[in-house]
Design a protein around this nucleic acid. Structure first.
Lengths: 127, 127
DNA sequence: CTGGATCCATTCAGATACTG
DNA sequence: CAGTATCTGAATGGATCCAG
């Protein structure tokens, strides 16, 4: 990510470590199962809360809201509340969100492509 | 990943759900902070246990071994034990591991590119 | 040096109940 | 429908000790 806090010039050392720790924090946020699956699930469309809940399968009400808030906080998804009754909330990816999704697509594609290799690797490993 | 268990032809339904659940399991394995950071850290080179430990910073002895075992089990890293004393163990990425690393690179690049956007998004969000 | 095992605090995540 | 809050068991992760 950022090479390493090898030791910078005293002047911008603080900035470097701040940027670095921010990067690590963001990375930790998004490098989790649910966040990535949610980003995948929203896709190019606009999705409602319940749609996402059904689409992701296995995710709990709590984890979905929690991760959606986190993604919103980091500016990856946008939240549109329609002041109707019953309420309707639409989620869409922001531009950075869509950019991230492209790389997540890569991971999904990777998973599909290497399913076989992984299965045999597990066999050799002994479970 | 795999669209959804919408309902397949009875014949291969079992296979589909098996492949699907396997894919989800793998995705859950690798979509975690440490696994991705380790893959990044090993890179094109061959790395020793202690090198990784120093390079990743923040990772504990336990998490490193645990994740290395998991990555090995899934055939993403290879483990070479030199029967010397003191022992020396080298880790390298397998071909699938390197392929995955390419997509992880994308995520790192993404993080760098959008640091600014995220910081301002957080400001607007109110923390 | 590498790595397993154990103990223990913290965190996480599911279930449930309650609002607008 | 969407979301918050709380309670509780389960999983996580760090520290430490031991071994080849």
């Amino acid at each position: 990510m950022v090479p390493k806090p090898v030791d910078g010039s005293p002047a911008d050392e603080a900035d470097l470590t701040r940027a670095d720790s921010l990067a690590r924090e963001i990375f930790s946020d998004i490098a989790n199962k649910w966040a990535l699956l949610i980003i995948e699930a929203v896709g190019e469309d606009t999705r409602r809360f319940t749609e996402l809940r059904k689409q992701i399968d296995g995710i709990s009400h709590k984890m979905l809201t929690q991760n959606l808030r986190m993604l919103e906080r980091n500016g990856l998804v946008e939240r549109h509340v329609h002041p109707t009754v019953p309420p309707r909330v639409d989620y869409t990816l922001t531009e950075p969100g869509r950019a991230l999704r492209a790389t997540v697509d890569g991971m999904c594609e990777w998973t599909r492509r290497h399913l076989g290799h992984i299965e045999t690797a597990r066999g050799r490993f002994g479970t």
